[in-house]
Design a protein around this nucleic acid. Structure first.
Length: 340
DNA sequence: TACATTTGACCTCA
DNA sequence: TGAGGTCAAATGTA
């Protein structure tokens, strides 16, 4: 094939991708708007988190799914291999300095580098630290209230802290490049309580229901495989307002798969229930017995969020800060909150 | 043998 | 410059 033909084909595909990206953007924005409105109206959030989806959100989810898959297919062609890069840089430009994506010394290969060629002792510690990745913190009486498989990769004594902090990453990182990590630390004031900080979203293949359990319940935003991005972005932009909105919006506590308890935030402690059937419980008992609770009859979780910007490792991020700010400025009834 | 954990070394960032 | 986060060799376990 001659180069002109290739160029024409490449341009056409690029145009198609551009159109799809626009569609994806629009659908994501629509979903954010609807989610935001729903959260403002205290809709039946139990239905959302329990997996009985709101039909509108479900529909949008399907649209996003279609866009995502189509773009992914096109993205896999050599001609448009730079699409995600373009999108990524576009997003970064709009989100400011946010070097959250880890970069390995070998050019970004996220797989387990230990077995790779050319990795010598000099490479140890050579990485770009994740900065301002999407994080949220959970206080729990057990560290396994999610069904992901975690692999411990480090432990560190933290200054002025009685207990060491343990570092876990998703077991599927080597095989699927999942960037999710979590940090677990015992609370000083209550050694039976663990502060678990989740960093980044899982991109590995697990059920949405499972993921929903470990993602922050973002006041009505459904967290499924493809709109995690939307939720993440919304999360980041709404986070600044959440503190002030906490008094108005009931928080949610997942008390079991498919079960949700609504909680008045004046009564955090009364939500105590069992998270039965965690498939990783036994695993974690084995891998990190010193932090497992002897009495796991009581495990309540208080979900609260770090207001850190999210930009980590989402291949398709289409909404920039200005768009979202104006979006929420237009629709957010909570005036006078901190500017983003 | 394969996979997970431990732990000291090393790097980044505030 | 030190604290915190990650790497990767050594070690443990099934």
């Amino acid at each position: 094939m001659d180069s002109d033909s290739n160029n024409t084909k490449s341009i056409k595909i690029k145009n198609v991708v551009d159109q799809l990206v626009e569609g994806y953007k629009s659908a994501t924005q629509l979903q954010l708007l609807l989610s935001h409105q729903q959260s403002n109206h205290h809709i039946d959030q139990t239905r959302i988190v329990s997996g009985d989806p709101d039909p509108v959100n479900e529909l949008i989810g399907k649209i996003l799914d279609s866009f995502y898959k189509t773009i992914s297919v096109l993205d896999s062609f050599d001609q448009v291999a730079n699409v995600s890069v373009v999108l990524e840089s576009s997003r970064n430009a709009s989100c400011g300095d946010d070097s959250a994506t880890p970069v390995s010394c070998n050019g970004g290969d996220s797989s387990d580098s230990r077995k790779g060629p050319g990795v010598g002792k000099g490479k140890r510690g050579c990485y770009t630290r994740k900065k301002r990745s999407h994080t949220w913190t959970v206080e729990a009486r057990r560290i396994d209230d999610d069904k992901y498989a975690w692999r411990k990769y480090g432990q560190k004594q933290i200054l002025n802290s009685k207990f060491p902090r343990s570092y876990f990453r998703c077991t599927h990182k080597p095989t699927q490049g999942c960037q999710a990590t979590k940090q677990v630390q015992k609370q000083e004031h209550d050694p039976n309580l663990f502060q678990i900080t989740y960093i980044g979203h899982h991109t590995c293949n697990v059920s949405d229901a499972t993921q929903a359990k470990t993602e922050p319940l973002d006041h009505g935003i459904v967290m499924d495989t493809y709109n995690t991005l939307a939720a993440t972005i919304a999360h980041d932009h709404v986070d600044a307002n959440i503190q002030e909105r906490e008094n108005d919006i009931s928080s949610l506590i997942v008390v079991g798969e498919g079960m949700v308890k609504e909680e008045d935030n004046n009564n955090y402690d009364h939500n105590k229930d069992c998270c039965e059937g965690s498939s990783t419980y036994s695993d974690l008992s084995l891998v990190w017995p010193d932090v497992m609770m002897s009495d796991d009859r009581q495990h309540h979780q208080n979900h609260y969020y770090h207001g850190e910007a999210s930009t980590t490792s989402h291949q398709f991020s289409f909404i920039d800060n200005d768009q979202l700010s104006s979006l929420f400025d237009s629709y957010c009834p909570y005036e006078g909150t901190s500017s983003i």
